[in-house]
Amino acid sequence: MTQTTTQTTPDASMTTTPAQAVLTRHADAETCADPSSVMTLLADSDTPGSGFTSYRSTFAKGAVGAPAHFHTRATELFFVISGSLQVLVGEEVTVLEAGDFLAVPPHTPHAFAAAPGAEADVLFVFAPGLNRFDYLRLLGRVMRGEADPKEIAESAERFDNHYVDSPAWRAALKISAGSADRA
C-alpha cells in the first residue's frame, strides 16, 4: 500500500513524497498477556511507515493498568472502544466511557485502570512513537513473575516511562478496591 502526498514548498514548486500505509491484520498481531489484561501490539515506531506506537489493551474487571507516570517525548492518546476506563490526568481522576478520547501531553502525570466494576477495551497511540513493544513485553513478564520489577525502573529512559507518586491516584485506587470488596 502506497500513498502519494503532494506538498507545496514556499517557492511554489511541487514535490511528491511516497508514504507507506501501515496495516496490521488482527490474525498477525502479537499479543502480550498478564493476569488482568491482554495487549494486542499493532504498530511500533520502527514499523515501516509508522512514526507512532499503537496497541490495544483489554482490561478485566478490577485490572489496575498503569501506575502514575509521565512521558517526556510523546503524547499518549486513549480511545475507549468499550467499557469504562478510570484515568488520572495531573491530579484529576475521571472515568472515560465507550467512545471517549483523551490526549495526554508530555510531562503530564497520568495513570489508568479499568473503572470500578467494569472491563475496558482501549486503543493507545503514542506520537511520536518510541519503540515500546519491548516495554510492553517486559511488563507482561514482570506481572507473570518471570522478570524482576527492577528492570522496569532501569528502563525508564529507554522507554520514556517515568513513574511518579500520586496521592490522588492512590486514593482513587483505594476507593475502587473498597467498591470491589462491597460488590
Rank of each mutant, 00 (worst) to 15 (best):
R25G: 12
P167E: 05
F70A: 03
V93D: 09
Y55V: 09
N131W: 07
F70Q: 03
P167T: 02
G99W: 01
R137G: 10
L85W: 03
T40D: 10
V38F: 00
Q20F: 05
S176A: 15
M14L: 15
H71E: 13
L138Q: 04
P128T: 12
Y55G: 09
A127P: 08
S50T: 09
D100F: 09
I81W: 01
L139D: 06
T24R: 08
A171K: 14
H26M: 09
A60Q: 07
G117H: 01
T72F: 05
P67G: 12
E76F: 01
S54F: 07
Y55N: 12
L139C: 07
G90V: 12
H71I: 12
F59H: 06
S37E: 09
T2C: 07
T4H: 13
V87N: 05
V164F: 02
R170E: 15
V64W: 03
A171P: 11
P35R: 00
G90E: 14
Y55K: 04
T31L: 07
A147C: 00
R56N: 02
T31G: 08
T15C: 06
A118T: 07
T16F: 12
A156D: 01
G145Q: 01
D44L: 07
A27D: 15
G51T: 13
D100R: 04
H110T: 04
D148P: 05
H162F: 15
I175R: 15
G178V: 11
T8R: 09
Y135E: 13
I152F: 00
R170S: 15
V95M: 01
T2A: 11
T72A: 11
E157L: 05
T2H: 09
R144G: 00
R158V: 06
R73N: 14
D165V: 08
Q86M: 15
L96K: 05
